[in-house]
Amino acid sequence: MELSELKVWCEGHKGAQFDYQKDWDAERYLIGGKMFAMFGHDKTGTPIVSLKCDPQRAGVLREEYEEINPGYYMNKTHWNSLALNGNLPSALIKECITLSYELVFKGLTKKVQHEVVKG
C-alpha cells in the first residue's frame, strides 16, 4: 500500500487534523489536539507509522510481525511503530490506524468528543 493511501485513510477519520513536526521530520494526524498517527523514519531510514495500541494487543502484534516494534521515540507500552516496507498487509495497517484513532478519541474529554462528532 502506498504511503499516500495511508495518509488519505488517516484523513478520512472524523475530525482528523494534519500537522508537520519539523523537529522530528514527521507528519502527524491528530484528533482533538491529540496525536493518533505519526509518519516518519526509524534510525535505519525505513518509513514507519507510529500508532497508539492497547498494550495487550501491542504485544501480540509484535510477536506475530517482525515489522511491528515498540513505538519509536514513543511510550513503548502504548505505541507501536509499523515498518512501511511492503511486508505488512494493508488491511492490518488500516485496522491499526483506526484502532489508534478510537483509543485517542476515547481519551478525550466528553466536551472535545462532542465537538469532534458535531464537526
Rank of each mutant, 00 (worst) to 15 (best):
K94S: 04
L3E: 04
N75D: 07
Y29K: 06
K118C: 05
A91M: 00
W9F: 15
M74C: 07
I48S: 05
L51Q: 05
E67V: 09
G32L: 03
R62S: 07
Y20A: 04
D54T: 09
Y73S: 12
D23E: 12
N87D: 09
P55F: 12
H78S: 07
N75T: 07
G12C: 01
G86I: 09
K110A: 13
P89H: 08
S90M: 03
L108R: 02
Y29R: 03
E67L: 06
L84M: 07
K110P: 02
A37F: 10
P70T: 12
H41W: 05
C96D: 01
E115D: 10
V116K: 05
E64Q: 15
V117A: 08
Y101L: 06
D42K: 13
E27L: 07
F36K: 08
K14N: 09
L6A: 12
R62F: 00
A26L: 02
V116C: 04
A58V: 05
E115K: 12
L88Q: 12
K106P: 00
T44K: 15
G107V: 01
D54A: 14
H114Q: 11
G71M: 12
Y20Q: 02
E64H: 14
E66L: 13
L103Y: 01
L51K: 08
G107Q: 08
Y65C: 13
E64I: 08
D19W: 02
S50Q: 05
N75S: 10
Y101Q: 09
E63P: 01
P70H: 08
P89S: 07
R62I: 14
E102K: 14
Q56V: 12
M35R: 08
V116R: 04
Y73R: 15
K94L: 05
V112L: 06
E27D: 11
M35T: 10
I31H: 02
N87Q: 15
V117L: 11
D19R: 14
V104C: 09
C96L: 14
A83S: 14
L61I: 06
T44W: 03
I48E: 03
S50N: 13
Y29F: 15
Y73D: 04
S81E: 08
T109H: 07
L82Q: 06
V116M: 08
S90V: 12
R62T: 06
E63L: 10
V8S: 07
L103S: 09
A26G: 05
M35I: 15
V60M: 12
E63M: 10
L103R: 11
C96V: 09
L103G: 11
L108Y: 01
Q56D: 10
I68C: 09
Y101I: 08
H41K: 15
V117I: 11
